[in-house]
Amino acid sequence: MSTQTAAERDMAALLIEALHLEDRDPATVDPAAPLFGEGAGSWGLDSIDALEIALAIQQKYGIELKADNEATKRAFASLRALTDYIAAQRPQAVH
């Protein structure tokens, strides 16, 4: 398993709270694991979870996710990709 950054742990905590996955520990989830799909190690999330994640991110960071955007699709690949995407968006959101 890859090592987490502090930002990835924050994002893991946000997802676990938003999706009520309280059986998971934000400190021990694999930041490189896929969020969606049935594969081994995947979080196994579905499209309804994606709506919940978008809402949690909007409320915490003021960033509105859009599905018609390739960057969003890439961002939902893993916790790490999502964390990086939000970090890249945040300076714009502050302006």
Binding site: S47, A50, L51, A54, Q58, E64, L65, K66, A67, D68
Partner: peptide, 12 residues
């Protein structure tokens, strides 16, 4: 023509 998904997509 689209199928907007996230709230921001629907608004757009």
């Amino acid at each position: 023509a689209g199928k907007p998904f996230f709230p921001a997509d629907v608004v757009a």
